[in-house]
Computed example of a mutant assay.
Amino acid sequence: MPPRFTIIRDTTPAAAIPKGSVVAMGNFDGVHLGHRAVIEAALAMSRSRGKPAFAVTFEPHPRKFFSPNTPQFRLTDETSKLRLLAGAGLAGAVVMTFDTARAGTTAQDFIHHDLIARLDVSGIAVGYDFHFGKGRVGSPSLLLSEATRLGIEVDVRPPVDIDERPVSSSAIRMALAEGQIADATAMLGGPWFVTGEVIHGEKRGRHLGYPTANIRLDKDCGLKHGIYAVRVGLGQGKDHRRFDGVASFGRRPTFDNGAPLLEVFLFDFKGDLYGTVLDVAFIGFIRDELKFDSIDALIRQMDDDSARARTQLAAAPDAFPNLGVIE
């Protein structure tokens, strides 16, 4: 069995926190290639020092704290982020609550109280654009001057580019909003995925010959409405199973134009999925969401969508998010 992924929170007793660990710091929304460069730097330091490597991250996302009424399209919720961090080979994650007290903590206090006194870190890896502390005045240069003076190694990672375009969470959100799945996949280093419990729907799909697993995504999800080729993960660890499929995300304009819903049809699957939790990885965009004049026209299009999804999936790398198990 892989080592247990340890989650340290503000309430974790100091005695339970490993001493001398190395940390990779960031919000890590999406755990994209830029984040992975920071994680790899922390892992390299941890190996050279013989100490565990942890991610230090913040929940809720600071943007949500400062602008609670502004829609925030998160690439990964807290659980999904932690599963990706576990899959990246880290020993665990330090999840710091981002609240009024945290927002008011000065950069100096964050370094000396949170990182040194509480976590007792021996090494720190951050991205070139990581800022922290009250007013975001904390910077990689401040970390370098303060931590290095105290004998703590600091590795500041430069930006990661693809075809001279910087990788960032905002660029990935924009790609997903435009249905540019290949671009999002390249920046993430693997397919973007969502996780959700299968709920009861109107059960129209079974009458159309396409019974779907329906999942309600976060209301702020900014994924382009349309039809996608997907890979679906069911279960974890040794019980994990994977299926190819086709999915629709949108408002079902042919029927009710209701709240956005993800409807997934799993190829070559028989069984009851209600109440189960699925991981749905987006492999390719097929078409925009459309309104049809007849059910027959819709079924013909669904047949074509399924054929196109199978073709895309057969041509795509056999990739799925590397998700670790968290407790």
Score class of each variant (00 low, 15 high):
Val31Asn: 04
Ala44Cys: 12
Gln301Glu: 12
Glu178Trp: 02
Ala117Thr: 12
Thr6Gly: 00
Arg216Tyr: 00
Glu289Thr: 05
Lys81Leu: 13
Leu188Gly: 03
Arg241Pro: 01
Leu90Asn: 02
Gly89Met: 14
Arg206Val: 05
Thr148Asp: 09
Leu290Asp: 06
Arg242Val: 15
Ala107Leu: 08
Ser80Leu: 14
Met25Gly: 10
Leu85Ser: 03
Asp77His: 05
Ile299Arg: 15
Gly189Met: 09
Ile116Val: 15
Met1Cys: 11
Ala213Leu: 07
Val126Leu: 07
Leu234Tyr: 11
Ser21Arg: 13
Gln108Leu: 13
Gln236Leu: 14
Ile283Cys: 12
Asp304Thr: 15
Phe130Val: 11
Arg4Pro: 06
Gly179His: 07
Gly30Gln: 02
Glu263Cys: 10
Gly133Glu: 03
Arg49Tyr: 01
Val156Ser: 10
Val280Thr: 09
Ala171Trp: 00
Arg47Thr: 01
Met96Gly: 01
Ala229Tyr: 07
Ser122Thr: 10
Pro52Gln: 03
Lys270Leu: 09
Pro18Ala: 08
Tyr274Ile: 03
Ser170Asn: 13
Gly133Arg: 09
Ser139Ile: 12
Ala314Cys: 06
Gly127His: 10
Gly245Gln: 11
Ala297Lys: 13
Glu40Phe: 06
Met302Val: 08
Gly235Met: 11
Gly258His: 10
Arg74Pro: 00
Ala101Gly: 07
Lys291Ser: 12
Asp288Asn: 14
Val38Lys: 02
Val23Ile: 15
Lys238Cys: 00
His240Tyr: 11
Ala14Ser: 13
Leu234Val: 01
Gly226Thr: 13
Ser48His: 03
Ser139Asn: 01
Met25Thr: 14
Glu40Arg: 15
Leu142Met: 15
Arg136Asn: 06
Ile286Tyr: 03
Pro158Glu: 08
Pro3Arg: 13
Ser21Asn: 13
Ala125Pro: 07
Val325Phe: 04
Gly50Val: 13
Pro140Gln: 11
Ser306Gln: 00
Ile181Trp: 09
Met1Pro: 09
Ala37Met: 05
Gly138Leu: 07
Gly245Phe: 03
Phe267Tyr: 06
Asp120Phe: 10
Arg242Glu: 15
Ala42Met: 00
Ala86Val: 05
Pro68Lys: 04
Thr195Phe: 08
Gly271Pro: 05
Ser168Phe: 05
Val23Pro: 05
Asn214Arg: 02
